[in-house]
């Protein structure tokens, strides 16, 4: 399960709405214990994909390294990434699968005509064949 407070979920939705009709992207920093992954902080990033930002996003490796160092400095892990799907469901595409690693949580938020809709989280299987749906919980008692 991915534990994401309503406050952080709302920040992802706001980033997605603000970026529409382009895709937004960002990093999720947090902790993992007893099988539950808790997101504690978000890092909003610029979509570096200039040729087709409506249906693609890109985070350069230098930004990945920067975010990893920021996580380590706070005693957190870089547990996953979020991005938006403008006018498309929050399901990973084949392109998403080809560019994913297991272990990371990939949160996708759908945006319809500029309005954020459903949010889902996905984990790539070890054999890279497909993503599994990861439940998102927002139990505020465990967040903080």
């Amino acid at each position: 399960m991915l534990k994401l407070s309503e406050e952080l979920a709302e920040r992802i939705r706001a980033h997605a709405a603000q970026s529409y009709p382009y895709e937004c992207c960002g990093a999720m920093l947090g902790t993992e214990a007893a099988g539950a992954r808790l997101v504690k902080e978000l890092v909003m990033l610029d979509n570096q994909r200039e040729d087709s930002p409506r249906n693609r996003f890109l985070v350069h490796p230098a930004d990945v390294l920067r975010v990893e160092r920021a996580a380590q400095a706070q005693g957190l892990d870089l547990v996953g990434w979020y991005h938006s799907h403008p006018d498309a469901p929050p399901r990973p595409s084949e392109f998403d699968r080809e560019h994913a690693w297991p272990w990371y949580s990939y949160v996708i938020v759908a945006v319809e005509a500029g309005v954020p809709r459903r949010m889902a989280s996905w984990r790539l299987l070890d054999d890279r064949s497909r993503f599994d749906d990861e439940e998102i919980g927002s139990d505020l008692m465990t967040v903080g």
Partner: peptide, 10 residues
């Protein structure tokens, strides 16, 4: 180090 990439289907 990965680049992080993805996006909706065309």
């Amino acid at each position: 180090v990965p680049s992080i990439a993805g996006g909706r289907s065309c």
